[in-house]
């Protein structure tokens, strides 16, 4: 199985992952092979089976609605590749 080039470009765009034209053909084969392999799940009759997102040993907890952390601007920004004052800096988004 091979995924078509348009599909590779579409999912790369959705993932915001730059993929060069030279890589497309290799990814069509590699990803196609993986997808073809996982399609073995089609052999199973899954009618009436409940899906699970996890094993759910923990019951979701509630806590008091209060501030427990904050006022750590320098720590939060300490790894920012670009900053302007107490803000992250990014290329201009709004004209």
């Amino acid at each position: 199985m091979s995924l078509d080039a348009a599909t590779i470009r579409r999912i790369a765009r959705l993932a915001r992952l730059g993929v060069g034209e030279a890589e497309i053909e290799r990814l069509q084969t590699e990803l196609g092979h993986i997808i073809g392999w996982v399609e073995q799940l089609g052999e199973l009759d899954l009618d009436g089976v409940e899906p699970i997102a996890g094993v759910g040993h923990a019951a979701l907890r509630l806590r008091a609605d209060e501030v427990t952390d904050g006022d750590r601007v320098e720590a939060v920004l300490s790894n920012a590749p670009g900053r302007a004052g107490p803000f992250y800096a990014v290329p201009k988004v709004v004209e």
């Binding site: 999912i11 790369a12 959705l14 993932a15 990803l31 997808i35 899906p51 699970i52």
Partner: peptide
């Protein structure tokens, strides 16, 4: 590869065929 596979199996039109199915098999 894993980001792209993950994006594909969660994308509109493929979610039921892959991700939902896998969640059932996990069950």
């Amino acid at each position: 590869r894993r980001i792209l596979i993950g994006t594909y199996v969660l994308s509109s039109g493929y979610y039921d065929a892959y991700y939902l199915k896998a969640q059932k098999v996990r069950s």
